[in-house]
């Protein structure tokens, strides 16, 4: 009888421990990321484009860094600067961890956005930001792979000539080249910094 009561107590303790292990391990995967999370993560489509200094930039060379990819264009005065300003703020917020982050803008307006235009545009936000340029075909293919839509819209009567309607997500690619999540327009610098910091601190194991 005494023996029976003893083992029952241990059973309760064991059950408690089991519950703890289950609960804590069960929520480790992804749950804490705050963007639109891919679960499971996808392999980010690789690409090689030309950066704003004229050098080739390939995603595969960025292993070990968290890459934040944004499709935009330099004559975009409102949405793109809002997002790039938030990304710059995110980078400042990360402090030293910010060295393990690369922000890159891929232009969806390759005709107007020459490397020089891109250089002037992206470095206003942060000197480490990179503007990426490719042929129209390359960019079109990448847009398809990343689920980005960008459509030229003529604006008769406007000095702009045309604008580009576009989806404005920030794509988050981890140190192993996995596409982890997307942030919609308006995501805060704090939310983005929080997620990037988690990815950095977990060393890609998150």
């Amino acid at each position: 009888m005494a023996m029976k009561g003893y083992s029952r107590r241990w059973l309760i303790v064991a059950a408690g421990l089991a519950v703890m292990v289950l609960l804590v391990s069960g929520c480790r995967e992804n749950v804490s990321l705050r963007g639109l999370v891919f679960d499971p993560p996808k392999q980010a489509p690789d690409f090689t484009l030309t950066d704003h200094t004229g050098r080739p930039f390939s995603l595969a060379d960025q292993r070990g860094k968290v890459v934040l990819l944004y499709f935009g264009f330099a004559s975009c005065p409102d949405v793109c600067p809002s997002t790039l300003t938030d990304l710059a703020r995110m980078k400042r917020e990360l402090g030293r961890d910010g060295n393990q982050v690369q922000v890159a803008l891929i232009t969806v307006d390759p005709n107007r956005d020459t490397p020089q235009v891109l250089a002037d545009y992206v470095t206003v936000f942060d000197p480490s930001f990179i503007g990426l340029h490719g042929s129209e075909e390359q960019v079109q293919q990448l847009m398809k792979q990343y689920g980005v839509t960008a459509v030229r819209k003529d604006l008769p009567g406007s000095a702009l000539g045309y604008t580009i309607d576009h989806t404005a997500f920030v794509h988050v690619i981890d140190q192993s080249g996995r596409w982890r999540e997307q942030f919609p327009f308006g995501a805060s610098a704090e939310d983005m910094a929080g997620d990037v910091r988690q990815l950095i601190r977990s060393g890609g194991r998150l």
């Binding site: 309760i12 408690g16 703890m20 609960l23 749950v31 804490s32 942030f183 919609p184």
Partner: peptide, 30 residues
């Protein structure tokens, strides 16, 4: 005593789990 310990473990683990799993604040709209 053991029962109390068991209950304590459950409570602590629940707290930990909820803390770790809690969804963040909804993201700010545009």
């Amino acid at each position: 005593m053991m029962r109390l310990l068991g209950a304590l473990i459950v409570v602590v683990s629940l707290t930990l789990a909820v803390g770790a799993c809690a969804p963040g604040q909804p993201m700010g709209a545009a």
